[in-house]
């Protein structure tokens, strides 16, 4: 990230805005299962896209901006902690995968990112509530996380494929 072009900056701003819109829209939909932390995480599509097309720095900034603003718009202060911890771990897991995965395996990073996101959520929940018993939600959270990760992963992969095609044209 040496010197940001206007093009890059506006792309990042655009992606942040889209992620934020998805994030806020999703917050309006009632949770599919009444378990705290279970959600589709559609905004993750943008994170995956940013990781694979823009790189670590921009992806990190987009994610941070989306989480901070998203919590401000849609959630409570406490949910910021969960999102930050989850998002950070998710990103840390995704970044090394960038070098390992082919264009057809992008969905894998989303699933593994989701798993680490769940780990972050549970850890914060245990610390915040002081109740290790909450860990009993981990298996259910993990299963739903994998499912959601598969969905957003394939969505992101399709998006990236489309964008690649456009660039070639």
């Amino acid at each position: 990230m040496k010197g940001m072009t206007t093009r890059q900056l506006s792309l990042m701003a655009l992606l942040t805005a889209i992620a934020l819109a998805i994030h806020v829209a999703e917050a309006q939909i009632p949770a599919p299962v009444p378990i705290p932390g279970v959600k589709l995480g559609l905004a993750n599509i943008i994170t995956v896209y940013a990781v694979f097309t823009l790189g670590a720095g921009p992806a990190c900034m987009i994610l941070a901006a989306r989480i901070l603003l998203g919590s401000l718009f849609a959630g409570q202060a406490i949910s910021l902690l969960y999102s930050l911890a989850g998002g950070l771990l998710c990103l840390l897991a995704m970044l090394p995968l960038r070098k390992v995965l082919t264009r057809k395996q992008i969905w894998v990073s989303s699933v593994i990112g989701a798993i680490f996101h769940n780990v972050g959520q549970i850890l914060v929940a245990i610390v915040v509530t002081g109740t290790p018993a909450i860990a009993s939600y981990f298996p259910v959270l993990l299963l739903s996380g994998i499912a959601a990760g598969l969905f957003t992963g394939f969505a992101a992969q399709a998006l990236i494929a489309r964008m690649d095609k456009r660039k070639k044209q």
């Binding site: 990230m1 010197g3 940001m4 720095g57 990190c60 900034m61 941070a64 901006a65 901070l68 202060a77 910021l80 902690l81 930050l84």
Partner: peptide, 16 residues
């Protein structure tokens, strides 16, 4: 380049 957002993030976290 992203040292500023990082700093803002750190301050927010510290407040929480």
């Amino acid at each position: 380049k992203h040292s500023k957002p990082a700093r803002v993030l750190a301050v927010l976290l510290a407040c929480v």
